[in-house]
């Protein structure tokens, strides 16, 4: 079955990101295809390249990056939700005259239309953290 995840919660401040990551790993372990994780609302903080949690705590950002590398799961971040929360890639930083950027590769900024397409195209869209 083809899955997608919609994640609305920031890591550490809510359980949503932790549950979503474990669900993602479980879906793949069961032999399903996880097409993409869409990060929206406070979920965009999962893509923060500058996040530096203590070493003995779950490494959530790394967990998403591993999923992309090992299982080709697309990591799509809503651009409108991200920019207002300070999650910004190099191109947008240049466009808005900002000194630095904070979107960890391989996360990519995209539009909400992508979320709608995922919902329609995949067999299941599972939301975490409403």
């Amino acid at each position: 079955m083809r899955y997608a995840i919609l994640l609305l919660g920031a890591p550490y401040s809510s359980q949503a990101a932790h549950s979503a990551l474990r669900f993602a790993q479980a879906v793949i372990a069961r032999g399903h295809r996880l097409e993409a994780v869409f990060f929206y609302a406070d979920g965009v903080h999962n893509a923060a390249s500058l996040a530096t949690p203590p070493q003995d705590e779950p490494q959530i950002v790394d967990g998403w990056v591993d999923l992309q590398r090992d299982h080709d799961v697309r990591l799509e971040v809503c651009i409108a939700a991200a920019l207002r929360r300070g999650i910004i890639d190099a191109a947008e930083a240049a466009r808005h005259g900002k000194d630095g950027h904070s979107l960890a590769p391989p996360f990519t900024l995209t539009g909400l239309g992508q979320l709608i397409d995922l919902g329609v195209d995949c067999d299941r869209l599972i939301t975490f953290g409403a």
Binding site: A41, A81, G111, L112, G113, I116, D117
Partner: peptide
């Protein structure tokens, strides 16, 4: 943000 998702879906013809 929820309403925005609804509007985008509608704009995409859903």
């Amino acid at each position: 943000e929820g309403l925005d998702a609804a509007l985008v879906a509608a704009a995409f013809g859903r």
